[in-house]
Amino acid sequence: MDMLLSSPSFAFMQVLNSISLGMNLFIIAAGLSLIFGVLRVINFAHGVFYMFGAYIMYTVSKDLQLGFVTGIIAAAAGLSLIAIIIERGLFQWLYDKEHLMQLLLTFAIVLIMGDLAKIIWGTDQLSVSYPEGLAGATNLGFTFYPTYRLMLCVVGPLIFLGLWLLVEKTRWGRLTRAATQDMEMLSALGINVPLIYVTIFIIGSALAGVGGSLAAPINSPTPGMDATIIVECFVIVIIGGLGSLWGSFVGALIYGFVFNFGSVIVPNWQDVFAFLLLMIVLLIRPWGLFGKPEREGH
């Protein structure tokens, strides 16, 4: 706490720490939120998708030495393929069923993919090197800050912008938004709703993969890494509002700031404030800061 008040560069570092953490989490949480917004599926398997993204990055960049960017592309492609298999093979049969069935299915996927990861990559904690040029620190004039973290501070908003333009400014985006309102009407108008669904699931899952691949140099790919991230993502999307892109973005930033400054100011209570915030939001505005109240009869 003293350092925060006495050292502006230290305080600024905490701001950057908060933004970079928030942006990494946003990339993952946005996928979770997007899938819920359109498909109305609470995908518990999203964390395990993130874990697969990190492992794919390890295989591509460290084992195969094909480079970091190739690792990101491979993670996105790999998770897209998994998404097609899961959505077409499993989810499409459960859209009409109650939420409990969907939850159980996603939980089963968590267990199956978790064991699959152990069979493929083993149980060791792995490490992924920083890409060339991003391993060191950047001189910001009054302090140095890790270049890779700065990159996350830039990539997060770019992904947000890309998603926002896609959803708000394209015909496909309008159809997607319409699908969230009245899927049957859209179908009656001759729109291929299943195609919209599978595409959304691919984008959401690929975001988890990209988030995992980007996290790999700072978060060791290891069994069980999905359990932590899924909790953080749910906190973010509940604070921001399930299904809202803006909500995920702002929720992730709030989480980043609360977690980082909480760790500095009251280190023994670092987790409490994020969950306290979650409780307050649930009590006062259960649909989240940017969400909309659930309609009856969906």
Partner: peptide, 21 residues
């Protein structure tokens, strides 16, 4: 003296505090 929760994945706040100390 710094503490991090079991299972923590982000240590930036602690790292910068160590550097500052």
């Amino acid at each position: 003296d710094l503490r991090s929760k079991l299972g923590a994945t982000d240590y930036n706040a602690q790292i910068t505090q160590i550097l500052g100390a």
